[in-house]
Design a protein around this nucleic acid. Sequence first.
DNA 1: TATATTTGCTTAAACGTTTAAGCAAAAGTA
DNA 2: TACTTTTGCTTAAACGTTTAAGCAAATATA
Lengths: 341, 341
Amino acid sequence: MRNKKKTTIKDIASVLNISPAAVSKALHDDSRISTKTKEAVKKVAKELNYQPNHLASALRKGKSNLVGVIVPRTNSHFFSSVIQNIEEVLNKEGYNIIITQSNESYKKECSNIDTLLFTQVDGIIASMANETISLDYYEKIKSKGIPLILFDRGENDLNVDYVGINDYDSSHMIVEHLVQQGCKRIAHIGGYRHTRIFNNRINGYIDAIKKHDLSLDESLLIESSLTIEDGRDKMMQLLNLKNRPDAVYVAGDYAALGALQVLNENNINIPKDMALVGFGNEPFTSMVTPTISSIHQHSTEMGKLAALTFLERVKDPKTKQTLNKIILDAELIVRDSSNLK
Amino acid sequence: MRNKKKTTIKDIASVLNISPAAVSKALHDDSRISTKTKEAVKKVAKELNYQPNHLASALRKGKSNLVGVIVPRTNSHFFSSVIQNIEEVLNKEGYNIIITQSNESYKKECSNIDTLLFTQVDGIIASMANETISLDYYEKIKSKGIPLILFDRGENDLNVDYVGINDYDSSHMIVEHLVQQGCKRIAHIGGYRHTRIFNNRINGYIDAIKKHDLSLDESLLIESSLTIEDGRDKMMQLLNLKNRPDAVYVAGDYAALGALQVLNENNINIPKDMALVGFGNEPFTSMVTPTISSIHQHSTEMGKLAALTFLERVKDPKTKQTLNKIILDAELIVRDSSNLK
DNA sequence: TATATTTGCTTAAACGTTTAAGCAAAAGTA
DNA sequence: TACTTTTGCTTAAACGTTTAAGCAAATATA
């Protein structure tokens, strides 16, 4: 007994003996349609359980009201929160989002871009994979003439909008905090320099170390993929030094967790023997023992701003695309791992 | 100098002086088109940087090759892993997925369904929010005539495909394990009974307790929302009992984490004074101190099976939709929190 | 050689919507 | 009264693709 055929605008039109065009206009509250007709149309639409065919209108109007989102992964609180806020802002404006994950792979990222373009999205909001070095492939998006907004990973000097936090200053805050706690030899397990945000963190670290007249020991500055496993490896590397550091600033919470595990396993007292600071303020930082100090990246604002930037771009597509960087101030959350009282 | 107008099939046709229909067929390797023409078409397509318009073909063919996925949230390893595997299987078959989150809200879940239907997805794969009690709203999906596959949360006796694990047996495994470790008073912080999987876990717990001739104490069985906070609350409740349990089986890892925090804060030795077992095998269970025993839910298989079930349904839409339940065996991962040697 | 089949294309309609253009009737204006 | 404007619709084309139907030429079959 199920109504297999979907009701279309034509069905409504024929019931009321008016043209499909009138129905379309009535449904969109066009001023040139009488209130009477509008009411009749809406009544019949409800009765016939009319559901507009999005594909048809998208095809006709040349826009899909779909926005693609690319993230390295969704199972981190940061990205998940950014996504949620992008969604919230865009839903209100009638956009839906398609979420894709690159799993930190450049190849997957490229295929995600193709997928999204194929789906005729009206724009793409993305944060780049660890592997991704250049924005070359992203040119494809711009050549389609749709807005591209990058966040977190993707700071650039090209004409691509970017929303992120002040990584350089964040490093300064961390080093400053550790110095205040009395630390003298501060190590940094950073991300890969080819990613701008990690490079900024490293530069911030270096400059802050210099500023406080601490020795800038090359063995204390290590690049890492920032996974848990690599965090473990790099921490062991630091422990094997003749002259161990008394504090470690890790550029990612997952790697910081790995470091913490190694320290605990080796019965090294945190923070007395070794202070520890992470980056990202992932929920688990306050769950582990000891709790890990970390940088809060304002994921809520970042998501909202990314979405709003997109909305501005579609509203005003004529204005020349110029570099629009939004840099948020981050916040250091001090927890047990670096609290020496 | 940018080519603003997108190349269409017509453009290719006019270059080669053939009909658009021939181009379409050539691009799809129709047997009725000569190899010569096919090659020519593909060459021109590449030259003009032709990108097929997905909306147009979807409209014409009546299918979008989009599959909607609804999950309570993406920032849990379980859901994130299921999604990843759904994606992997479906991408191979030319489908893309749209991920939406309900944030455990029934209202959001309904709006997600509307959104997905509006986007003309070819099917929906979903796991229900905590709040969701009935499948009523999901009827909308079925009345559209597209496949609906539920996983994890959503076991049902209706004609809706379901993929999940054996929750009843999992509870048995856990209780059995705790008994073997010497526990006598085993408490259960369960989910809400209105959700089938949690009800199954509770029933499994009760039956296993009876089987081992342990006392079935009502005060030891508590329903919970299974968030970290509620895990804390319910653990405190158990600690306040005159006759404390010597083991707690928590139906979710996040709540188990909350319980662990409370135990640690109260200097209760885990597992000596109180053994602890969680459910879900979230990565953090092996990160905290002590590590938490948990049930591995085979998220990889679950995602793949959900996707495959969907593919079968679209391949064979004529066959009557009958209840197709796939129940996987779960696995207990024993860690420090319940290992009494 | 006459007929049947296959090959390689074309034509035209269709998917469901939106929208520019147009037109008659009603209402407003002088 | 005669004109202009507004109202309320209709007509028809368009978005880019797919596909059923058809047709002429080439090839196969008897």
